[in-house]
Design a protein around this nucleic acid. Structure first.
Lengths: 192, 192
DNA sequence: TTTATGAATCGACAGATGTTTATTACTAAT
DNA sequence: ATTAGTAATAAACATCTGTCGATTCATAAA
């Protein structure tokens, strides 16, 4: 406990990269069959054909692994769509759509609020994207761009999560449009 | 596992209420001394002078207890301030201030995103308050009041959480004002 | 007051967690 | 090719988890 996770990057040793990739893949496979809470570290290690002690060499617990995996996969999904920041509102809608899609295809769908470390780990990723966009946009001085990015990221996630939990969902594209309308004032000001 | 938490209300048996209160108090006391993750169910039961099996009679795990405790305490804090919904913007600022204060005086301050079931459990409470306020306000037809409430609640929480994690914080009142400016368009529309 | 209900206790259980120590095996240098 | 560094393995550990069955005790009713 209280042990820090070594950064996902900064390593060239192929053994480390291989182990982490195998652990993430193993978790992804297990999540298809059963709930995250019902998966033990032993099972993950077995599925990855690694020793259990090796797991703890890389992640302090299974939550850390899940968070790392979620971050990697969401970044992949976003990068695959190659969002451009030429149009700010379009970028916001694209990101919102990405979050909706990610939640929809995300393995494991916890109804309980307490059990959502998996999904929630995409918030910092979204936050970084907003910050990057605001930097290009060139915000007025005095307004806290980082704060706006944080607030918008949480707002988008909360809205997308609600959509995801709704039984008869509207299409993700439609939801993304709604999110854009609600959240754009947070990022771009009440005007416009 | 997969066992549902019996609702916090709906019981009149004084034994049940007493046990749950003692468990919450015990957890609150232990959280002063150590991290949530380092507290075992046995310790909680000991501090509450209850048997460990009694704990599992009321909560499926310690996360559920923490969430219940958080909800109760936040509601208390808000009710103590007796927020009126006569002025919508004022109500939003008051709620934002309540969330900031709650986080600040909240026991346990997890830096890790994965470890925040404790604090996050106030989001549904805030959401309900927004919904109640919007119902009084009388929203235009076609707009989804519940969705706006959810989005705003997550936005407020995310902003307040960021403020709470900042080393040299500005006063909570000042932060609440910033939050109001950012989030009010989500609830009341971009106009105004 | 007696009684039926069910809350609380106790002991025990298999399995999981996170850590440690010692050993082996691989990698990236010289 | 040798070697220093370190990742991976293995076995063992104390502790924690969630559950169970049997028993005792408190409460609200008759």
């Amino acid at each position: 406990m209280a042990q820090l996770l070594q950064p996902e990057t900064g390593t060239t040793d192929p053994r480390i990269l291989r182990s982490r990739r195998m652990l993430m893949d193993a978790l992804a496979i297990l999540l298809i069959k059963k709930e995250f809470e019902d998966i033990s570290v032993q099972e993950i290690a077995d599925e990855a054909t690694l020793n259990r002690a090796t797991f703890y060499l890389h992640y302090p617990d299974k939550n850390a692994l899940l968070q790392a995996m979620t971050g990697v996969r969401f970044r992949d999904l976003i990068e695959r769509r190659a969002i451009t920041f030429t149009d700010c509102h379009g970028a916001l809608r694209s990101i919102a759509l990405g979050v909706c899609d990610y939640l929809a295809e995300s393995t494991g769908c916890p109804t309980q609020l307490a059990r959502m470390p998996p999904q929630i780990s995409i918030i910092p990723v979204v936050e970084d994207m907003f910050k990057e966009g605001l930097a290009l946009h060139g915000t007025a001085p005095g307004v806290d761009a980082a704060l706006m990015a944080t607030t918008a990221a949480w707002a988008v996630f909360g809205a997308a999560r609600r959509w995801f939990q709704t039984p008869n969902r509207i299409p993700a594209e439609e939801m993304a449009a709604k999110i854009e309308i609600m959240v754009s004032p947070v990022l771009f000001g009440a005007s416009q």
